[in-house]
Design a binder for these strands. Structure first.
Lengths: 205, 205
DNA sequence: ATAAATCACGAACACCGTTCGTGTCAAACG
DNA sequence: CGTTTGACACGAACGGTGTTCGTGATTTAT
């Protein structure tokens, strides 16, 4: 079922209409409401389906840091791989099976790191939020760059043309704003989060 | 103009139709297209309008950390104060006036902290992403809690009823998952980010 | 073989974003 | 002063949307 739907995000989320999904399944739009309560419900189911591509931590190898980073990056790519799905994840705190499994694995990983329970709980929150937000950003980048223009040079031109008298500090940062690949930035952000978590125990009440 | 529109998010973003906005302004829907290209364009303008409530850093008092935290929290509340707007911010990287001013101020603040340029650039990215994501989460929480149920006890019951054999680690964390107010969690997350940034210089190329 | 439950779907409803042609009305110009 | 220009307003229409309902068809259980 959801497999037939995931095929549809080739055209983006705005094109994902009930009628089109039904057409993909060679049926009528009304028939979908047997399996799904809403369009929102369908999107949530699709999100859960997409989250299934995140590997369980048991299969991950490497150091503790590498395993945490691999898990978070997997969430980022799972949410980013279908345009618009990441925004669904951010609009709610999904309490579906696959997401809960990820939470469960993440808790286990953080416990391995020797964190106390409260820090684990809040870190799970923070890391999941970061992963979905990064997924949303990545997805919108992918969608924009595949559709038409050269996004990077376009952004570069935009910042170069910015009036220096209104945004003096941005103008001075022009080189650095575009510096580094997206992957480098994302990896750095993840390192920041982990370093921050390790340096900021929430403590036990 | 945008003032008349902001009044509309009392009913949430899904109720924000062109026809209803026009009605609020005692005019027809077609008349809006003189001032605005799209519905998306209107949402972007509303987002920019909302971002205007974020104070310039020049007016902030306190230590460096307090000022950074105050700025980020202001962004969170600006995006969270109108349901659905935060998702607009996450769907794009808005390049509108108010947002650019915030970026400019944030760069200034980070430079004050003695960070190198690349770290400043990437931190701006990270902090803005975090702020909008936190805004989205806060907004959805506000929307849910004002509408109907007691969200907290509802979530508590949900996690208590979770099958321990499938999610063993979540079950064991039940107390901590609900621990702490939202404000405490958010403050901790911000501390994590700042500690992480200070401990993770991106370096100069 | 019959009853019951499940699934499919055409038609309809109310509403949406957007466009187009026409209308109003005030300022600018001769 | 009359006339032309331009900006703004808006009713009507188009093609599309999510969702509901009544009615069939088809499978399953008795």
């Amino acid at each position: 079922m959801q497999a037939g739907l995931a095929i549809l995000d080739r055209s983006g989320i705005v094109e994902l209409t009930m009628r089109r999904v039904a057409q993909e399944l060679d049926t009528g739009a009304a028939s979908l409401y047997v399996y799904v309560k809403n369009r929102d419900d369908l999107l949530l189911a699709m999100l859960d389906e997409a989250m299934g591509s995140v590997p369980r931590t048991a299969h991950l190898a490497g150091t503790w840091r590498e395993r945490v980073e691999a898990l978070i990056e997997a969430i980022v790519h799972a949410t980013a791989s279908h345009e618009g799905l990441a925004l669904v994840a951010l609009g709610t705190i999904p309490r579906t099976d696959k997401v809960l499994l990820i939470f469960n694995d993440l808790i286990g990983l953080l416990r391995e790191g020797g964190l106390d329970d409260r820090t684990i709980s809040w870190s799970t929150d923070l890391l999941y939020m970061h992963a979905t937000a990064a997924g949303a950003e990545l997805a919108s980048y992918i969608a924009r760059s595949s559709n038409e223009h050269d996004v990077v040079s376009e952004a570069s031109e935009f910042f170069a043309a910015l009036p220096a008298e209104r945004y003096p500090l941005i103008a001075g940062m022009h080189d650095e704003i575009m510096a580094g690949s997206g992957d480098e930035r994302d990896a750095w952000k993840l390192r920041v989060l982990l370093n921050g978590i390790l340096a900021t125990p929430a403590g036990r009440p």
